[in-house]
């Protein structure tokens, strides 16, 4: 098993898995705690528009996706601050608009777009040094931001109105956080793809949530579960020669199933103790 580490592509994949687990563990816990899963799905799919436009203009697709998804994220946050807009409908429109733009621009681009499938389904085994540097930078920014401002993030997420009444710059924090959500999504599209990235942001977190009701611990557990799941996914996909992104998500679901079974067993043992 260890001989795989002789290959650079494999070492890169392992690094990518570790960094993805860090960013998704932290940001995903925030998403799950604040019930922002649907918003995140909208941002994810909107980013495909950015990829398509970047292809058409001959730019770096990751840059295109980053710009497009951060702008849509800020747009969603702005719209949700106004009371008279149906937020879920707005997200639904953005969701499909992004995909539509992506498809149109990719179609209009002369020649074949070879990496497109890897954006839809991800491909951790082709992650390069540049991707890794970007992911490392983003992981550092996210980790530092959440460590430094943990409590204020927690309080705003829990009771925004209360934070506003205390004159906290709620909007500024929400704009920064939604941008970090968007950037996390874009960086991890390389790993598991647009279709599956939302699972990396929610399954390890929901698993962690079975064992803790503390946001900080939820983040830490999610990172650990993310690492275990993504590494076993990479190995399995390599040996069975099946797509890595899908295998990683499948590994997450298996871990979730096991965790749920353990929790159920514990609960029933607890009940039996109380009765007996």
């Amino acid at each position: 098993m260890l001989h795989l580490f002789e290959y650079e592509f494999f070492r890169n994949a392992v690094w990518a898995a570790l960094l993805a687990s860090v960013t998704c563990g932290i940001v995903g816990s925030y998403i799950v705690a604040r019930r922002m899963v649907f918003i995140s799905g909208g941002i994810t799919h909107a980013s495909f528009g950015g990829i398509g436009i970047a292809y058409y203009l001959g730019l770096n697709p990751v840059t295109g996706a980053a710009v497009f998804s951060v702008l849509s994220a800020l747009g969603i946050e702005y719209v949700s601050g106004k009371t008279n807009v149906r937020e879920d409908s707005a997200i639904g429109i953005l969701w499909s608009l992004g995909m539509a733009l992506g498809i149109i621009f990719v179609f209009m681009t002369p020649g074949y777009a070879p990496n497109l499938m890897s954006y839809l389904f991800g491909s951790i085994l082709t992650v390069g040094k540049t991707d890794l540097r970007l992911m490392l930078g983003l992981s550092a920014v996210i980790a530092l931001f959440f460590i430094r401002f943990y409590h204020i993030i927690l309080f705003i997420a829990f009771d925004e109105e209360y934070a506003r009444a205390h004159r906290v710059s709620v909007s500024l924090f929400k704009y920064i956080l939604i941008s970090l959500v968007a950037l996390t999504i874009v960086m991890n599209i390389r790993i598991v793809g647009i279709i599956l990235v939302i699972s990396f942001l929610t399954i390890p977190q929901s698993t962690a949530n079975l064992f803790t009701k503390n946001l900080r611990l939820m983040m830490i557990y999610s990172i650990i579960i993310g690492i275990i799941g993504s590494l076993s996914g990479i190995y399995t996909s390599y040996y069975l020669d099946i797509p890595s992104g899908a295998t990683i998500i499948f590994a997450f679901v298996i871990i979730f199933g096991i965790a749920k079974a353990i929790q159920a067993a514990r609960t029933s043992a607890g009940i039996r103790r109380q009765i007996g």
């Binding site: 829990f158 205390h166 803790t212 503390n214 939820m218």
Partner: peptide
């Protein structure tokens, strides 16, 4: 279902 402890809720009164 929000992951926050009772202690943290009380402490949040000091956020101002």
């Amino acid at each position: 279902s929000f992951p926050i402890s009772v202690n943290e809720v009380v402490l949040s009164g000091l956020m101002s």
